[in-house]
Design a binder for these strands. Sequence first.
DNA 1: CGGAATCCAAAAAGATACTG
DNA 2: CAGTATCTTTTTGGATTCCG
Lengths: 133, 133
Amino acid sequence: MTDSVREAVQEKLANGIFNCPKELTLSMISGKWKINILYHLGTDGPYYFYELQKLLPAASRKEITAKLKELVEDGLVNRKPLKTVPVKVQYSITPLGKSLMPIIDAMLKWGQQRLDDLQLGQVEFGLGKVKHE
Amino acid sequence: MTDSVREAVQEKLANGIFNCPKELTLSMISGKWKINILYHLGTDGPYYFYELQKLLPAASRKEITAKLKELVEDGLVNRKPLKTVPVKVQYSITPLGKSLMPIIDAMLKWGQQRLDDLQLGQVEFGLGKVKHE
DNA sequence: CGGAATCCAAAAAGATACTG
DNA sequence: CAGTATCTTTTTGGATTCCG
């Protein structure tokens, strides 16, 4: 759904009848993998595309591509293709994207607290290597 | 998509391999209309179902029903059917839901700032009655 | 390597009708 | 009033292939 939120917001912006600021914010960070990408780029510095793929093993290339594209369109992420062979593309967070980090951090804290309350915070990470997204 | 985020999170919780707290938070507030609902319930007090419908004119009954159901399941919202004829159902925010309000408010502020920067903040609300969600 | 294009299965969402 | 059920259309997402 979340992407439909984004589309609805885009349309409202285009028509100048946008009147719900929190929707704008949500539309920019929701969508599959988006806050994961933002979080990684915002805390660990720039990543190449193939590195993001490794960081998000459950996401398909198609989806990562699509979400990065949206993030770039929304001004939250920079895209920088390098003239190497084969091509590498570096993604980094923009100042605007950086300004969202307090909100993402707050979500991280709230989620951690909630997990603790559910007594799942200390859970074992069973299956060998767990992908920490 | 966002609902798929929620499902993925539910599954992780069920399997005890949940390790990404911010996803938990996002999964609870993203999804069409959810933060609108939470915001209304959290700031204006309880609402009946039909009132929420009026507040979200662009949302179908089916969707509002579905999202309220998820919010109740997640413990963010209370559902209280009244024994009237015809039936009325009152929805209110829970303490847990209330604890999300700082994040939602931060999103509201960020979005407002962003709109101002885009010089769309003072835009006229053209089309007669604008649904303020 | 990073992406775009295509095809196809699955999921989401609108419209409508029905019920306590 | 507040849903539920059914049907149909639209949208998504995976898998695969091709290209610079």
